[in-house]
């Protein structure tokens, strides 16, 4: 139900042991945010070796069929920036390199680490579309130092704090509705008026725990922060500001094309986002056909 199955290794375990393990994992999940998948640590261990072995990492990933399929699909998607067709885990590893693979694995593991039922399904579907559009948009604006893989990963992780807070704070659903509708205050200011923290801080904390790069962590922490986007001299690294701009623009495109606009973010942030990407509203309109195709692919 929660989509957090551990792959084929799990099937080989004795039934009794499996129950104990599941109980322990449930217990851990009850008290904690989703722990970083072990596979990320394994890839990092391999990267620390003087002579990392792609084959060994490939074997680790292939041992988890769901992860392997996810990696091939992600690496092959137009959002990830590879022009070549990806047929195997080995292809993906060779084309992406260990660092980006580790990020892709984090992105794929994210959804599996959370419950995947009820209203969460809609949430993750929306995140997946924004991530896909972000990766594609990063290539369309083709700014130096804005990797599509980073834009994609950020798009997925950006709002994971919302899921954590929905599970922790009983009245958070109502807060979300108010934050989405507020035309004056920032999204996080509405959250902070009702709770001691907000989804950007919680998401940033989880990204730090999953060892995502600092620029992505900072972008998560500040993705509703107009002042941080517009300040000069900048408070945030250029990559962080561009990641925020890409994902906000992607979300705006999605809302324009699907006709469903339930947030006020573009009214609050749009005018600082477009200059960060070096485009204007007219450029954006010309992107509509391409964006529509990407949304269909993502679905």
């Amino acid at each position: 139900m929660d989509g957090n199955e551990e792959g084929p290794l799990m099937d080989k375990r004795a039934a009794g042991q499996e129950t104990v393990t599941t109980a322990l994992e449930d217990n851990l999940r009850a008290i904690d945010i989703p722990p970083r998948p072990l596979i990320i640590d394994r890839i990092r261990d391999e990267m620390m070796q003087g002579d990392p072995c792609l084959r060994r990492v490939g074997q680790l990933i292939s041992a988890d069929v769901g992860l392997a399929a996810g990696l091939i699909k992600t690496a092959g998607s137009p959002s990830f920036g590879l022009r070549t067709r990806v047929r195997s885990v080995a292809d993906a590893l060779m084309l992406l390199g260990l660092d980006v693979t580790s990020r892709a694995v984090a992105a794929i593991s994210l959804r599996r680490a959370f419950p995947n039922s009820g209203h969460y399904v809609r949430f993750w579907d929306a995140s997946a579309r924004i991530a896909a559009l972000s990766g594609w948009l990063a290539q369309e604006v083709s700014l130096p130092g804005l990797p599509a893989a980073d834009a994609y990963t950020f798009g997925l992780f950006r709002d994971c704090g919302i899921v954590i807070l929905l599970r922790r704070l009983p009245t958070y659903m109502q807060t979300l509705a108010r934050a989405n509708g507020d035309t004056g205050r920032s999204f996080t200011a509405v959250e902070r008026a009702e709770h001691p923290t907000d989804h950007a801080v919680v998401g940033g904390l989880m990204a730090v725990d999953w060892w995502l790069p600092e620029e992505i962590c900072q972008a998560i922490r500040h993705h509703h922060d107009r002042a941080a986007l517009a300040s000069f001299p900048p408070d945030l690294p250029t990559l962080s500001r561009r990641l925020i701009a890409v994902s906000q623009t992607a979300e705006h495109l999605l809302q324009q094309l699907s006709g469903a606009s339930r947030t006020q973010e573009w009214a609050k942030l749009g005018e600082v986002c477009l200059p960060l990407l070096g485009i204007d509203e007219e450029d954006l309109r010309q992107m509509h056909p391409g964006a529509t195709a990407i949304i269909q692919t993502a679905d």
């Binding site: 904690d32 954590i164 922790r168 709770h195 923290t197 907000d198 801080v201 919680v202 904390l205």
Partner: peptide, 13 residues
């Protein structure tokens, strides 16, 4: 700081 402190408490329940 306070937001981070609360986020850690909430995440760890």
């Amino acid at each position: 700081f306070l937001g981070n402190l609360h986020a850690a408490l909430i995440c760890a329940r």
